[in-house]
Write a protein that binds this DNA or RNA. Structure first.
Length: 488
RNA sequence: GGCCCCAUCGUCUAAUGGUUAGGACGCCAGGUUUUCAUCCUGGUAACAGGAGUUCGAUUCUCCUUGGGGCUACCA
């Protein structure tokens, strides 16, 4: 099966767009087909330089590499496939050829109306509570008048002549049977006065010529489907299957917008979300597997996905679950990979980390308790700078550690740990020795372990005392215990 | 205004012509743990409303209400 994703290079890649791309990708892969990427840059005014690269980079980050069409080859935008070009601005003659065919067959007609007249017409229609639609003034032009105007080079567009009596029905892969009345459909502009096609013409021509079998796109296109179906009919082509996916919504249920949400995928990349987490989250927004499985890799999604299980109603884009998924995926990471991932940001803050041979080990201690990569430097800070230890921190009501007993506990810890030889400086033996120390001296575990951990890290919470002591090494541990003693 | 689409916990959603309406996130409580986090257990919370069909509707039909999308020489 051949599916496609066809973004416009007007800026960043919207998360809704990413989800649409994901669904198209999944359908192609599931059916051992091809996922094609086409760039729809027919609006010259809105096209942004660099946007194509950006979209491609984000897709690559997400793991949705196109099999055909526009793609990144070593960072350079390039094209692959024998149905190109895959960038619409390079296909102008193709659209013009079919536009001409439509004109000759009487399915389209030139329109010379000025935008001022059109504006006024719509205003009048709305004032009379009518649907704003082209009034077909230019359709009543005589053949001679048209010829004359064309010869004079009057600016004009080409409009599709909608057969008004027709009833249009079609079956959407997600929504089922849908019906539209021909007379409610506007005579859509096909070719603009600058010679560029509109989306409507371009997508029909391209999807046919590129042998696209399934078009997956946002629900906002649903109301223009009659025009597209009619175009296929007028050109004598078989339309593809269509699946209109529900919209992503703001909290107030309006179409997801920049004003209310972070909608650019790169914002999530910048915040440190894993592609696995975002993809997992997006897949589950509007689709469900029919099982209780929540964690899905791209591969698992490919096997499990189906359009039948895609929701019809829009989904509010609430990222709470994304954060949870992010935590899940972090914990799923290989510890080596995890360490590599956080290393640059830690090194940036603490250059000492560069020479740290134990970095992976230390990183492993925070992997379980972390949700965002940006937390890493803070969570590892006590390895690379001396902690600030205060009485307030060392004493802890819940652990029944009072300020009065701090001196004794710290001295006891120092004396006990001092005796442990380097080769016994491992978690198990530290645990054994300190647990029995607590027992002998009639302390609760927390009463000696809290001050130890606090003295070593300077933080109210961190990985466990034994883990930290081992990662820090004996010398550093003793040093910090002594300075903690001085600070009380 | 017109056309089209949609409607289950706060959120993402499952299921069914007869169920204590299920799961996940969040939240709350408890447990494990030296702290935090993780993990485990439990709790909280939903079928928009009204008719009809039916022995029985959350489920099927219609209406109402509510929400959304489109209504450009933008995509």
């Amino acid at each position: 099966m051949r599916t496609r994703f066809a973004p416009s290079p007007t800026g960043f890649l919207h998360v809704g767009g990413l989800r649409t791309a994901l669904y198209a990708y999944l359908m192609a892969k599931q059916n051992k087909g091809k996922f094609i990427l086409r760039i729809e840059d027919t609006d010259q005014e809105r096209s942004v330089i660099g946007a194509t690269e950006n979209i491609l980079e984000v897709l690559q980050w997400a793991g949705l590499d196109p099999d055909e069409g526009v793609m990144l080859d070593q960072g350079i935008v390039s094209e692959k496939g024998n149905r190109g070009p895959y960038i619409q601005s390079q296909r102008l003659e193709i659209y013009q050829k079919y536009a001409k065919e439509l004109l000759e067959n009487g399915h389209a007609y030139p329109c010379f109306c000025s935008s001022e007249r059109l504006d006024q017409m719509r205003k009048d229609q709305q004032a009379h509570k009518q649907a704003p639609m082209y009034d077909r003034m230019c359709l009543s032009l005589s053949e001679e008048e048209v010829k004359k105007k064309l010869k004079a080079g009057d600016p004009h567009v080409l409009r599709l002549k909608i057969p008004q009596s027709e009833k249009i029905t079609f079956t959407d892969d997600i929504r089922g049977l849908l019906t539209f009345q021909g007379h409610t459909v506007d005579d859509q502009v096909l070719l603009k006065s600058d010679g560029f096609p509109t989306y409507h013409l371009a997508h029909v021509v391209d999807d046919h010529l590129m042998d696209i079998e399934l078009v997956i796109r946002g629900e906002e296109w649903l109301s223009s489907i009659p025009k597209h179906l009619l175009l296929f009919q007028c050109l004598g082509w078989k339309p593809p299957r269509y699946a209109h996916v529900p919209l992503l919504l703001n909290k107030d249920k309006t179409k997801l917008s920049k004003r209310q949400n972070a909608v650019a995928t790169h914002e999530y990349m910048d915040k440190g979300y894993l592609p696995e987490a975002l993809i997992n989250f997006l897949a589950l927004l509007g689709w469900n597997p029919g099982s209780t499985q929540e964690i899905f890799s791209l591969k698992e999604l490919t096997d499990a996905f189906s359009l039948e299980r895609v929701q019809k109603g829009g989904a509010i884009f609430d990222t709470e679950k994304l954060d949870w998924l992010q935590g899940q995926w972090i914990r799923n990471m290989d510890s080596e990979e995890f360490a590599q991932r956080i290393r640059p940001t830690v090194e940036e803050k603490f250059p000492a980390a560069k020479d740290d041979k134990e970095f992976t080990k230390k990183a492993a201690l925070i992997q379980e308790r972390m949700t965002f990569f940006t937390e890493a430097p803070e969570m590892l800070s006590y390895y690379y700078e001396e902690p600030t230890v205060t009485k307030d921190l060392l004493a802890n009501e819940k652990q029944k550690v009072t300020e009065d007993m701090l001196g004794e506990v710290l001295k006891l810890l120092t004396a006990t740990l001092e005796k442990i030889p380097e080769d016994k400086w491992i978690e198990d033996s530290l645990k054994e020795i300190l647990f029995s120390l607590a027992e002998d001296k009639d302390y609760k575990k927390g009463q000696i372990l809290w001050p130890l951990r606090a003295a070593l890290t300077g933080l109210p919470y961190s990985p466990g005392a034994f883990e930290v002591a081992v990662a820090l090494g004996k010398a550093k541990t003793m040093e910090r215990l002594k300075s903690a003693l001085k600070s009380i």
